[in-house]
Design a protein around this nucleic acid. Structure first.
Lengths: 195, 195, 195, 195
DNA sequence: CATGAATGAGCTTTCATTCAT
DNA sequence: CATGAATGAAAGCTCATTCAT
């Protein structure tokens, strides 16, 4: 996987972003302090500022990494020759698995998505580019009449968001979801956008 | 002391909670400072501590108020003699309308729901009690075979959460939802939990 | 002298400005830290920010106080009915005495006056207003032909600045100036601007 | 090691001192950071510490260079066979010209001269040695009765300092001084120390 | 010699909480 | 009950200095 040379530089930067992921997931924006960030990364406070402009920059770059990371996993076995519902099933199962494997990333994402309007980041464009295959799927589905004629955002709200929500509840231990239930849920989410 | 009359005391307490709602919705937990809270409520800083133990307590009590407020509106025209799908449609439309009428309450709720695990409040029990009519509906639906055999939480995740999510996106101006689309969405959310 | 009620508020503010004067005079801008400022004033760090917007504001207000303080002393026995050279002698002797009595104020002033161009404050206008009687004296002297026909600034540079410089050297212990020498110096400074 | 040849070593040292001059003149002690110093000199941060013990040492050595530089220019056409007032006129005109040609050096000097007592450098001895011809002139003048019987320091304070001050004001754009005015000012400064 | 990544003490500023009035 | 001046811990960030390369 990690093909590039893991230079010392990248090690520190990566350690800081790892620490940031952990911190944001577990303590939220409020608990995300530079001191804790440095401790978690095993570096001095000043070192943070060699790799990032300021606190804001750490958070922004973390957001970018998260988006790239998740997209890389979700479309790993994407195959446009399959039936649309099967494509959808694969994507969401990958997404689900990714969340289970990387709960901290999931928690971070929901922190970003629920920032108050004031602080909202310009994340939507990034997400759109990254999740393009899903948008293509929506378009084809609408054309073929097997997906309801609703906008991309509404479709995602009906289909993908419930999955995000339920994994989160699952990972938090609020509800228990077996593999079988997971498939039922994914099927249900597909049904929500079927005509 | 006197139970019935809304005393001056209660006025101050209510003013503080109102200010808290506004602040949390618009500035997030980060911008939620006692000084701003006092300013918004038109009281002195010290006064906050006469009605609440500390910052945390204000937030916790705000959460309770929100839950009670929303429940009061959602079940206002609840009628168990109607068909289940019609009962569901009424509830969700009320919920939708409530969110549109009280966007700040909605923003606050999503702030609470997405707190990192560390800070998570014991909100789930409250919610359960408050939304009891919805749970009853689920139970009847499962029994009658017109709602999938999934746990209450999963059903809510598939049906209610998408609605919350989409109103939020709508109110934030990310997507535009007409009244007609709203009904389509509510119908779709029902379909997601239909067998 | 101090007619106004010395309210508690003013006490703190005055204590902070006193501490600022001492600090700036003895440690310079570099040694002027908020922590030391608070220590010197006998207040907590946060208290500074109740009376001043920020570090910059403390320094600006200190500058204003200094200007007002010195002007108040220099023209205390100003009498336009006296001959110009006697008026001049009085002013400069008062100025000299003021510097001897308030060495820290003098040190501060020279810190302000020698800031690098980048940070220069808009102090010249203030000074002009405050030292108006001196400017009037210059004007009359030029008209009467007993002061050289040079601009106000040049006259001050030739006459007043040497006095400032020499008191400073004196107070620093670099040179020793007796009262008699002082009068000789003042006379010499008048001669520098005589035709 | 090798004394005569201006080795590469000396180049670096000179570059650092040049950068220091620029920095101190334009940003003051506050803006004088090692990082900026290195950038300006085109060397790495660590290199500074090969040529200087620490920040303080750079500043001290800069001070020495400045004194030497100015002295070298002031006495370039010094001629003890000329009348004393002509000797004086030459020196001060050279000094004036030097300041006009090297405003940054002038700004630096005034920074040094107005340091708070705490940080004062042992500069006075240096100055004395360097400006020896001026001191000789004072001595001869006092003996001949054409310069007032005041100490060297006082004479400099009355005669030289006003010139420094006025060039500084001129270079800062606060006042405009023509060549003719300059000569008038120099004449006035001589008159201040004439009996 | 020369580098610049790494350090951590120290800076300015904010803010939850207290308490004398 | 109500106030708001006062506090000091903790935040984000800078920078002189060191040292492995």
């Amino acid at each position: 996987m990690t093909a590039a040379v893991p230079s010392a530089s990248n090690d520190k930067r990566a350690a800081i972003l790892d620490s940031a992921l952990f911190l944001l997931a577990n303590r939220g924006f409020h608990g995300f302090s530079i001191k804790r960030l440095a401790e978690g990364a095993g570096v001095a406070v000043g070192t943070i500022y060699l790799y990032f402009k300021d606190r804001e920059d750490v958070i922004n770059q973390l957001h970018g990494e998260i988006i790239r990371h998740v997209a890389g996993k979700v479309f790993v076995d994407h195959d446009t020759s399959l039936p649309l519902d099967e494509q959808y099933r694969r994507m969401v199962r990958n997404l689900w698995q990714f969340c289970v494997d990387n709960p901290e990333t999931l928690y971070c994402k929901s922190q970003f998505d629920n920032l108050p309007p004031h602080l909202q980041r310009s994340q939507r464009e990034d997400s759109h580019q990254i999740f393009e295959p899903l948008l293509v799927l929506y378009a084809k589905g609408r054309e073929a009449g097997i997906i309801r004629d609703l906008s991309d955002d509404v479709l995602s709200g009906l289909a993908i968001e419930p999955c995000f929500f339920l994994v989160r509840q699952h990972l938090r231990g609020f509800i228990d979801i077996t593999d079988e239930m997971r498939d039922t849920i994914i099927a249900a989410s597909w049904r929500a956008i079927s005509p």
